[in-house]
Amino acid sequence: MIRCEQLRFAYPGDAFELCIEEFAVAAGEAVALVGPSGCGKTTLMNLISALLVPHSGSILVGGVEVSRYPLSARQHFRLGKIGLVPQNFELLDYLSVRENILLPFRLGAGSGVDARARERCEELAGKSGISEHLGRYPDQLSQGERQRAALCRGLVTAAPLLLADEPTGNLDPGNQDRIVSLLLEEARRIGSTVLMITHDPVLLPRFDRVVDVLALRKGGVS
């Protein structure tokens, strides 16, 4: 599903440089990305989602070289192929929970907000236990409920690649478990590949593979 080779990226004016010889994730695999803060986990994820363009090397997602996409194609790639679950929920406070979950369709994913999209939204909300909050606004929800809403938004398009950047970082253990369970179960059900950044060792056994990005930069895979 994902194949990175001879990857090299640096932020302008910053000493940090991400160099990865080789990194691959199989389709349907659930991979946890670990490593100390600043080691390049989020940078790697942004390169894979085509938010950043590598200075050299290649990134293939589903067999397609995404790093060479023009800007408009990268937007379409993200809308159509990636489900994003951010750490800080990133829910729009002026949209209801339902509208937030359906947001990717509003931006152009799929065929817009149709009956199927609504059905999928209801289904995910039911599985994550926020059905009764669909008409409410994010500021009326608890942290755990907000993260579940953000997770539903990441899953709603049934994208082949799910990228989750520390989605459990702000949650209590109960909610952490619930979020990761829902993410992995739903990904398995629809056959999505999962790449999730986490610092929590308790969650690691639930993934197919754990990749230490710091070790990856030195040429190894753990």
Binding site: S49, L51, L71, S72, Q75, H76, F77, R78, L79, G80, I82, L84, P86, E90, L92, L103, P104, L107, G108, A109
Partner: peptide, 16 residues
């Protein structure tokens, strides 16, 4: 700005 950045991450182009 955070909202706009996130819209961009989701797939909204700068024109949107």
């Amino acid at each position: 700005r955070g909202e706009f950045r996130h819209l961009h991450h989701l797939g909204a182009d700068p024109g949107t």
